[in-house]
Write a protein that binds this DNA or RNA. Sequence first.
DNA 1: CGCCAAATTGACTGGTATCAAGCTACGTGG
DNA 2: CCACGTAGCTTGATACCAGTCAATTTGGCG
Lengths: 258, 258
Amino acid sequence: MQPSLPTRTAALPVAAARPLAPNLRDAPRTGTAQRIADTLQLIAGVLEPKRRIVHAGDVIYRAGDRFEHLHLLNAGFFKLISLSSDGREQVVGLRFRGDWLGFSAIASGSFGCDAIALDTAEVWTVRYDALMQACISHPALMAIVHEAMSQEIVRDRDSLMTICTLPADARVAAFLHDWAGSLAARGLRADQFSLRLTRAEIGNYLGLTLETVSRVLSRLAKAELIAFHGKSRRDIAIPDVHALAAYVERRDPTAGLH
Amino acid sequence: MQPSLPTRTAALPVAAARPLAPNLRDAPRTGTAQRIADTLQLIAGVLEPKRRIVHAGDVIYRAGDRFEHLHLLNAGFFKLISLSSDGREQVVGLRFRGDWLGFSAIASGSFGCDAIALDTAEVWTVRYDALMQACISHPALMAIVHEAMSQEIVRDRDSLMTICTLPADARVAAFLHDWAGSLAARGLRADQFSLRLTRAEIGNYLGLTLETVSRVLSRLAKAELIAFHGKSRRDIAIPDVHALAAYVERRDPTAGLH
DNA sequence: CGCCAAATTGACTGGTATCAAGCTACGTGG
DNA sequence: CCACGTAGCTTGATACCAGTCAATTTGGCG
């Protein structure tokens, strides 16, 4: 979409909106990770969710399914894929521990996308009506739910801004930076991890082709902003997160609205 | 971003996700318009919101403002503009009668974008804590708020999909179709209306430049899918909404994920 | 009436998509 | 344990959509 670096659009939403936990050793039990743990504990105490283990490729819900339950991720990774009427697919979101699945179905009463596990994961499931009831007796729970929905809105806007304003290189870099940030915020290892998506899926998520994603990754590796750790070429190492963030930001500082 | 019509990406989210009210005479007081009216009435009854009239250019809140209030639009149009750390702007949303403003600030406690009136409008304002209280005593109100937030999530995803999968022509067409749909759903005239955005703002919203928007509009007019009604070139007429929808859909029907 | 923002249009450039081979990793069965 | 098939990935050559630069016209408003 947008051309190269001296773009008229540009911006840097990712770093501003979701600052990385500086290091997993600095904030393992104090920041987001603790908040997530607290949320899970509250839900577990109040609602007795059904817990289950799912595996890579398993589907929690499909587009068209009737909405009755919300899901909360206790462990693992999910992708959300929206299907258009003419059969196209679009990755519209990625989910980590502490994230909810299913908010988007509340309004219409049925799901508009598939939720697919990217690896072994633990999902907690609650009935939406039960959750509503619980919110009435436990205002703290209502606040948590609202915050989660609010955060999802913010995240979606960040995605939009990334895609609208960044050229391909920066989009991929922002994606990696974001992923690392999500891991770090949950106390997981962020300097070295395995992408659980194919190049095609990453490209789809970012509005790029798989070839472009592949090229950008090769370029980033050559610039030593990332490194391929394992053999699979999905194992990414990020030697310096700040350098990656700086790379995303390094856009032409002129211009306003397009 | 994506090339022309035979795109590898493509999709048709808009029509599927937010079907147009077929005609404002068919469903003036039965569908969405009625639901919006009911919502407004409930809010008015339960919360006694502060009401005020604002004018084009007026700002309801700015990025960085502390979050305390939610706003509900009783009349008029708003744009939401997100500001990145390096000063770039991105139109992240458009709002109509019945839409809420401010959900995205719940999570962080402060606003991440500006809300700016596009013309004279009436805004109802309620304190968030008062709303939370009211939700406890009025479960129907809680359901309404959840639905509104859910709908905002769906809308954001639709935007993402439009931008990720459609070439410039279709994006602009989808934008017009969407705008017309929003008007129709509220019982307003949808076959002829005034865009309240500049070409630059439309382009920013769609991830395009103002020149591209201008060219596409000229092309759509030449193809008689739209017409310039007034003198200002922001007054658009849509002789046949279905033709416009068909134009958006007319993508290459092959391929899956990129 | 004249200024200025907004819009239009043209010529040109360039970033990504597209098309096309190969290559690599991994699982499966012999 | 290794051959083989296949899905995923990389890389190169080329095409083309949309961005960029620039000049002009239009419309709104004081």
